[in-house]
Amino acid sequence: MSRSERQYRFRMRQFGWRDELKFLIRGISGGFLFGIPLIYTMEVWWIGSYTEPPVKLALLAVTFGVIFLLSRTESFGDDPSERFSQTFRKSIKSLAIGIICTTFILILLREIRIETSLNEALGKIIYEGMPFSIGVALSKVLLNDTDDDRFEDKADLNENQYSAGALRSEDLYSATLADIGATFIGAFFIAFSIAPTDEISMLTSATSPPFLLAIIAASLAISYAIVFASGFTTQDKRNSQRGLFQNPIDETVMSYLVSLFASILMLLFFQRLNFSDPWTWWLEQALILGLPATVGGAAGRLAV
């Protein structure tokens, strides 16, 4: 084998891994978009706790069946020649991603702890993992943009403006405002139904500073993954969108702060926060609700 062939094979192997990584990040992003509202529902935690093992196994089988059907339906539009075995492998992967992400987020929110019984933990993972895994399977179609022409025109216009160095400051501010608005709308869309529930105060009471730091890190990472790393069809659009915070890191941090602000507004609106409450309570509740709000905010920015 010549040196160039070896180099080429090495590069191809890298592409294979890159594809898998893309599938993984995209799946995780879709899972969070679809599954996060149910993660914040205590009835689901309880149902998971007292469900009998045979029911849990049946539920796992049903979840797999649903994922398989969804993947099959999706492949009709994407690759009609896809074999059943390929769909089977894809479905197993979607289920596994859902299980891992659900376990991670339940540990993060302290719904699974060292002292949690195995039966309870398994019930929570299986029940919460169901929408998560479906979200993973649906990730490819979840945020498809059908209005490509409008985007292309806009992107071309932006490109021309940039190349000529003629982008006016008003345009820059308008684009920034559009991003902030989209983050707000997305955050409200996902977190508005969670904000008035008792789950927020329950989760806040159960958390601790190290877990809050982990929640901040997870919120930022998920937001970044959804918008910049997942390879959703509108991701290129994000990269060509102009605004004050268009650098991926800047935008992720900015949108997180906007989502936290939106969370505080929602909590105030539903009187879950009062001005007599200590600032630490405000901060903790905002961070807990900030996680689903950030996921929504990221989706909102992809949708503009």
């Binding site: 094979r9 191809m12 192997r13 890298q14 592409f15 294979g16 891994w17 594809d19 898998e20 599938f23 993984l24 796992l60 492998r89 197993i92 992967k93 289920l95 596994a96 991603i97 299980i99 891992i100």
Partner: peptide, 19 residues
């Protein structure tokens, strides 16, 4: 084809293990 199969195989085996 080979490299893709290898990457897919590893993630599939890991997924089967998790489930």
């Amino acid at each position: 084809r080979k490299s893709r199969t290898f990457a897919e195989k590893v993630t599939f085996v890991f997924s089967v293990l998790v489930v």
